[in-house]
């Protein structure tokens, strides 16, 4: 049972990690992340990189949808903008890795603001549908702006070099992706300690009152779109370096639903939720693969069942969490935490 968390100064009470337990958990996580590449085999390292990219993107979407309440079904298209930016820069200009990623983020942020412009007039589901429209229009651009995007066959990338060192294997990429994503998550957590994050939450909870309290709605909605798409753009850029080929079909519409599902399952409006949701939703299809492989001796053509079973489970997770655990996995984690805080005294 935790008795008290006494603080000497307001700045320590405003810190992100406030208790020794939180620091300890963070230390364990850091150690695990450091040790992982030496312990995991190629397949799991591949998954670790994919999870890292998805965490970055889901955190970005969480800023927009979970915290600001603007539902976007355009996250995949935003990632595609980032991926294409990286691909084109590397092919035509040859600028360095980090510059390309930042440029991907910046350009995607601009596109995000454009896509967010309908929030001038509409909100809620109407805005969500406007983002669907925007993703299809962006897809059209990727297919038809042949001179830049090379049309449906897409662009292949050389392996990235990071300060002279080529990033050829997933082992290398892991060491670049994980710090970048960690910084992005930290940034998101910081954001919600400041006036900008509070303004976002206020817009989500009661937009009109927020305006009367001094928050210019359109500016902050667009800012949320910008930050969120900046994250998506960087995630897309990492994706491009990871798979090393970008085509219009790399980011199908279902990917946008995937990210929305990730933050729903993880927990909208909590940083932790974006992370656990992305990890969980990326790993579930792989777990299903093991399940199907395991079942294959007993079930005829189990292999052909994998894809439909994934589709069903994916949908069922969205429905199940929304109906039974609308606050997502983050809330389950909080519940466990509270249990141990109160232990051995509990209701």
């Amino acid at each position: 049972m935790r008795i008290a968390t006494a603080k000497q100064s307001y700045s320590s009470d405003e810190a992100l990690l406030r208790t020794n337990t939180q620091w300890a958990w963070m230390g364990i996580l850091a150690l695990a992340l450091l040790a992982a590449p030496f312990l995991l085999d190629g397949y799991w390292l591949y998954l670790a990189c994919l999870v890292t990219i998805n965490v970055a993107s889901a955190t970005g979407l969480n800023i927009l949808t979970g915290f600001t309440g603007l539902v976007s079904l355009g996250q995949a298209a935003f990632m595609a903008v980032g991926a294409y930016t990286v691909a084109v820069l590397q092919r035509d200009v040859g600028t360095p890795f980090l510059f390309n990623l930042l440029a991907a983020g910046a350009l995607t942020a601009i596109v995000g603001v454009l896509v967010g412009l309908p929030s001038l007039r509409v909100k809620g589901l109407y805005l969500a549908i406007a983002t669907i429209a925007a993703s299809f229009i962006l897809h059209f651009v990727f297919v038809n702006w042949q001179s830049l995007t090379n049309g449906p066959s897409g662009i292949s990338l050389e392996p990235a070099t990071f300060f002279g060192a080529p990033l050829t294997s997933n082992f290398h990429l892991y060491w670049v992706f994980v710090p970048i994503t960690a910084l992005m998550v930290l940034g998101a957590a910081n954001l919600f300690r400041t006036r900008i994050g509070r303004a976002f939450i206020a817009i989500r909870d009661r937009d009109i009152s927020a305006e009367v309290l001094g928050i210019p709605l359109l500016r902050y909605k667009l800012l949320s779109f910008a930050i969120s798409s900046f994250y998506a753009g960087i995630a897309g850029g990492m994706w491009a370096y990871f798979f090393r080929v970008v085509t219009p079909e790399s980011f199908p519409f279902i990917t946008s639903i995937f990210f929305l599902a990730a933050i729903i399952v993880g927990g909208m409006g909590t940083i932790l939720g974006g992370i656990v949701g992305a990890v969980f939703m990326t790993l579930v299809p792989e777990l299903l693969r093991f399940l199907v492989e395991w079942a294959s001796p007993f079930v005829p053509n189990a292999g052909t069942l994998l894809s439909p079973v994934r589709t069903v489970v994916f949908g069922a997770l969205i429905v199940g969490f929304l109906v039974f655990e609308p606050q997502g996995m983050a809330e389950i984690i909080q519940r466990i935490r509270r249990f141990f805080h109160l232990w051995p005294f509990r209701k």
Binding site: N190, R195, I196, R198, I201, A202, A210, L213, G214
Partner: peptide, 24 residues
């Protein structure tokens, strides 16, 4: 979605100056 403290802090919004980069 916010604590009492954050609700009160929100009131100061218009008088604060930090930008998005500083916030991140």
């Amino acid at each position: 979605g916010m604590t009492v403290l954050d609700n009160i802090k929100l009131g100061r919004h218009a008088h604060m100056k930090s930008n998005a980069l500083q916030a991140l």
